[in-house]
């Protein structure tokens, strides 16, 4: 789920991961050490003592440029604008002592302006489900980190660009692709600090539209995070992720210069509220440094969310 639909999702979803990360880490005692990279599959992640949670978040971001196929940064052309917004409803539940299931329902809106017009549109995005199995808990053993397996499935419930009604496809809300993800997360804590490294692979089967069969290359993402938890339960995290994707295959032939690279930096925070509510927020962006990305948009944005867990 960290790649997406209109690909901007790669940005949004990593940001969501941070939200989960911070939120989990900021819960008391044992739970403090139990949670990185939660949103890698979905933003919803249960702490060790949690049995379920529900939440929602709103995101907004702007595209300010892009990387071409050589990795050169190109600023957005004068007179063009793209703003993406999204509201997610999510929930998670524990179905085994070490296993949890989560689901996310996104609602997506896009505003686009080009030299020939401007428009806005939106609708239901691609639904996502994720599972997480914790083999070991972070902090449970002195020299053994928390180790967890991650899995995810994204269903193309959104509207792909070819099926959009608006000329600039602003009512396109999905990628059209099924996506399956698998990952491994390692976590270790030292006092108030939590360190997380997560690796994920993603596969998207080919799809056909307008007589074109498009098979994306395999994707690998690496995510590293450092979280610091304050005594009042608030937390702050810095996350860096880097995604690599192979060349696309179109109608059975490899399309040259279509590999992608996406770098993302996120600063996230959490503040505990009464009644076990958690206020979560983050700012994120793709650093516009030459050669850092390839075939990808460059954007920046912010997320604000609210989560309510139950023990």
């Amino acid at each position: 789920m960290w790649t997406t639909v209109r690909r901007r999702s790669s940005t949004f979803l990593s940001a969501a991961a941070v939200l989960g990360l911070v939120s989990m880490h900021a819960t008391p005692a044992r739970a403090q050490a139990c949670c990185a990279a939660t949103g890698v599959v979905t933003p919803a992640r249960l702490g060790i003592d949690d049995q379920a949670l529900v939440g929602g978040q709103a995101r907004v971001g702007a595209i300010v440029g892009s990387y071409d196929h050589r990795g050169n940064y190109v600023g957005a052309a004068s007179g063009t604008t793209e703003v993406d917004a999204e509201q997610d409803a999510f929930a998670a539940a524990r179905f085994l002592p070490r296993a949890q299931l989560s689901m996310l329902v996104p609602f997506v809106q896009t505003y686009r302006s080009t030299g020939t017009g401007s428009e806005a549109g939106g609708g239901l995005g691609d639904l996502n489900a994720g599972v997480r199995y914790d083999f070991t808990w972070v902090g449970a053993r002195r020299y053994v980190p928390g180790i967890a397996a991650l899995g995810g499935l994204t269903i193309p419930s959104g509207r792909p660009p070819e099926a959009a009604s608006n000329p600039l496809a602003t009512d396109a809300t999905g990628s059209g692709f099924v996506q399956v993800t698998a990952g491994l997360a390692l976590e270790e804590s030292f006092g108030p600090w939590l360190f997380d490294v997560t690796g994920i692979v993603a596969f998207r089967p080919a799809r056909s539209a307008r007589g074109v069969e498009d098979a994306p290359g395999p994707q690998v993402a690496l995510l590293g995070a450092v979280t610091y938890t304050l005594e009042n339960g608030a937390g702050i995290a810095v996350v860096a992720s880097y995604t690599l994707e192979g060349d696309v295959s179109i109608d059975g032939r490899t399309a040259p210069d279509t590999a992608r690279r996406v770098a993302l930096l996120t600063l996230a925070g959490l503040y505990p509220l009464p009644r076990r509510l958690r206020l979560q927020g983050s700012v994120f962006g793709n650093p516009p440094a030459q050669k850092l990305g390839k075939n990808s948009p460059v954007g920046l944005g912010a997320v604000l969310g609210l989560v309510r867990p139950w023990s």
Partner: peptide, 26 residues
């Protein structure tokens, strides 16, 4: 300028939700 543009556009997006084109291509 980008930030203000983004804020205005975000309000437009959130306000209209599922709007159609507001001006046709020339």
């Amino acid at each position: 300028r980008i930030a203000s543009k983004t804020a205005v556009a975000a309000v437009l997006v959130l306000a209209c939700g599922c709007a159609g084109a507001d001006e046709g291509p020339s």
